[in-house]
Nucleic acid binder design. Structure first.
Lengths: 215, 215
DNA sequence: GGAAGAAGTTTCCACCGTTCACATGGGACG
DNA sequence: CGTCCCATGTGAACGGTGGAAACTTCTTCC
């Protein structure tokens, strides 16, 4: 901890103008949602935690919704990156598809605040996901892994989009139930347990997706 | 329109005390959520729509959250009833399980306001679902239909709870995506389309669930 | 008919989102 | 080096919200 600490952050920025308030606001939002729940998210409390007045955020975000949109976009970027990372560990189509699903659920469990904002009932307008193939196009990754599996003759024939939607539904449902704590009949569920659940469920669906080679 | 209209409601109730405010508040909440979205739900606007002062609701609900809990409980009752109705139309285990899932998705699409409240990120405390076998125990119906399928030798062996959880994840994910309008790349999705999607997805999962008799 | 209590109203408080006029300080340019 | 500009942060103000407390009005029951 050999920091000469004029300010606590890494780069020495005793700047009056806070250095990077935008980032601080995003972080404060995520922390607040994680600690107190989504309902407790108020622009004023976020500003308070960032150490500025309640009007300062309006220099960086037009709106409370604009802040949430920024959080959601960041979330999609991170999620897509995680999916790419995990999918790279496998070569077989079924392995890659399973990793894709597990990554989705793990992202949700490890970044519940991001996940809630990304898929919550907010947003008057659709959150405009980036272009296909971009760094936020997680659904594209899913569709691709399915068409690849079909081309390799491992997955059953059929329109890839409905099949991809089925996979998405499964992992999104599990993620939602975990994040919103609907499964906690007995104790909080750990990340490791979530991974086990995700693998288990993905494999079951995979059985229905594969050509009949018997498992 | 042969109504002698002292009050607009069906039963003539010029009663000062509004007749049934509790019911009116629940209905106003649902209408408000459906029309303006969940974020627009305010106790004051609900009271306004019911034609009373903003403090009147506190005679019937301790809290804003208490009102939402009541909405959620009603939702669980209706959903469970719908599931029983549709499941009764089939006798085979796989048919009953499919109907169970389709009913879940249809309930969500036809009662989006209820669904959002039931599974939203609100509620500080778990919403205390009723006793197993009660008129709100929709998960019990699901588990039962799986154990019955196993006893009949139609479904694969294994712990029924994780299998049921997989089914729940699938239909819950599809419902969430539909209700929160995450699938509307091109136009709003109709109830009939939702039913088709639900059937399609349920059948795919069923393929993974069944014993290998080839489909 | 009169008391008790349920149901609705009024008033008040703290907090929130948002706006606007204002202060400030750092960077650009002479 | 000085000065001006403007992005960034401040303070006060407005209407809307959840909630508590004291008050009024209707109903019911003895």
């Amino acid at each position: 901890m050999a920091m000469r600490g004029t300010r606590k952050k890494t780069a020495e920025k005793p700047h009056y103008h806070h250095g990077d308030l935008r980032r601080a606001l995003l972080d404060a939002s995520l922390a607040l949602i994680s600690e107190e729940g989504f309902g407790a998210l108020s622009l004023r409390e976020v500003a308070r935690r960032a150490g500025v007045t309640h009007a300062a955020p309006y220099r960086h975000f037009e709106d409370k919704e604009a802040l949430l949109v920024a959080v959601a976009e960041e979330g999609f970027r991170v999620m897509t990156a995680r999916m790419k990372e995990r999918m790279a560990r496998e070569t077989s189509p079924e392995g890659r598809l399973a990793e894709c699903g597990v990554a989705y659920v793990l992202f949700a469990v490890e970044h519940p605040a991001h996940f809630r904002v990304m898929f919550g009932p907010h947003f008057t307008q659709p959150p405009k996901l980036g272009p296909p193939g971009g760094d936020t196009d997680s659904f594209g990754l899913l569709v691709d892994s399915i068409t690849q599996g079909q081309r390799a003759g491992v997955f059953r024939e059929g329109e890839p989009l409905p099949l991809a939607l089925t996979c998405w539904s499964l992992v999104h449902g599990l993620s939602s139930l975990l994040v919103d704590r609907k499964l906690e009949m007995s104790g909080v569920i750990t990340v490791a347990q979530a991974e086990t659940l995700a693998l288990e469920q993905t494999r079951l669906l995979l059985r229905g997706l594969m050509r009949a080679t018997s498992n």
